[in-house]
């Protein structure tokens, strides 16, 4: 389906350090072609944040990251008027305080607009912020400009930035905001894909070890009742631990060494070990009935 996308000379493709599925690549290219923000959701550890880096690298553009916290206000992304500095200067400094312009500090969105070259702007974890946060940015993201009343200036985008937004779905995003976005949900990678991903990080890894580790990993994910399933980044940690520990690949599936790198909750840990016991001995697990 790449035929039509050649109209945009910006065409994203995966980089050496980031493996991307066809669907995700297409979603990125659709977002670029339609000039809409791309909203990325997905299980933790599926590489939402790294995607923006990969896009920037693939297209040879600069990446600006705006990390959202629970206290972040939309205004901060546009500009901040440093009135305190101005007051200070007026009393103790020797600067000309009548020039307000020098006290206007552009935020990440402002920076992205004023950059002479096109940039990739990552708005990371937008769901962390206040409920109204996304709505406050609607206009700016739509028309790609904003007005600074203090100086009477209007900041317009020199080159429309490519906007990538990630969300962990901690809050529902407002409908009006969603309507303007292109959306992609990063599904958890299947075993083949995962193999490629691990290979990128550990090119030297032994085939047998990787196969065994992946088998054990996907088995673990399939254990029902886990409160938090292990994700890609935990798998990578685990593989590293296995290599450093010099674990015999045959033992991986039977013993799940270094399980603590994969599972972070007590209950999950117990559950996994019990299930493992059932699997290796074929016996019945004692006391699994924890209902009430």
């Amino acid at each position: 389906m790449n035929g039509g996308l050649h109209t945009e000379n910006l065409l994203y493709d995966e980089t050496d350090s980031y493996i991307v599925s066809d669907e995700l690549r297409n979603a990125v290219n659709i977002a670029i072609a339609l000039k809409r923000p791309l909203l990325i959701k997905g299980e933790p550890g599926t590489g939402k944040t790294v995607l923006a880096e990969s896009i920037a690298k693939s297209l040879g553009l600069k990446l600006l990251v705006w990390n959202i916290k629970s206290t972040t206000k939309a205004q901060v992304g546009l500009y901040v008027y440093d009135t305190v500095q101005r007051l200070y200067d007026s009393q103790f400094g020797d600067k000309d305080v009548s020039d307000i312009k020098q006290y206007i500090k552009l935020g990440k969105l402002g920076e992205a607009f004023t950059a002479p070259e096109r940039v990739v702007l990552l708005i990371d974890e937008i769901d962390k912020a206040d409920l109204e946060f996304p709505n406050d940015l609607l206009w700016e993201l739509d028309v790609m400009n904003f007005h600074i009343p203090e100086t009477g200036e209007t900041i317009s985008a020199v080159q429309r930035p490519i906007v990538i937004i990630t969300s962990n779905a901690e809050k529902e995003l407002p409908d009006a905001f969603l309507r303007r976005c292109v959306f992609h949900y990063i599904a958890f990678p299947d075993q083949d894909m995962m193999e490629r991903i691990v290979r990128v990080h550990f090119p030297e890894l032994e085939n047998f070890l990787l196969a065994e580790a992946l088998k054990a990993f996907y088995w673990l994910r399939s254990v029902s009742g886990l409160q938090k399933k292990p994700s890609t980044s935990e798998l990578l940690d685990w593989v590293q631990a296995l290599t450093i520990g010099g674990i015999d690949p045959d033992r991986i599936g039977k013993e799940l060494p270094f399980l603590g790198t994969l599972l972070k909750k007590n209950q999950d840990f117990d559950l996994a070990l019990r299930q493992l016991h059932v699997r290796t001995t074929g016996g019945t697990a004692g006391g699994t009935n924890r209902g009430w």
């Binding site: 039509g4 979603a27 659709i30 959701k41 779905a169 969603l178 949900y185």
Partner: peptide
């Protein structure tokens, strides 16, 4: 109309899913 679906049904499927769906 920009041809982003590449005249294939799977293109149509992915394009539709990307643009019309906003929640997993």
């Amino acid at each position: 109309s920009k041809g982003l679906a590449g005249s294939t049904l799977s293109g149509f499927y992915h394009l539709g899913r990307t643009i019309l769906i906003k929640s997993e």
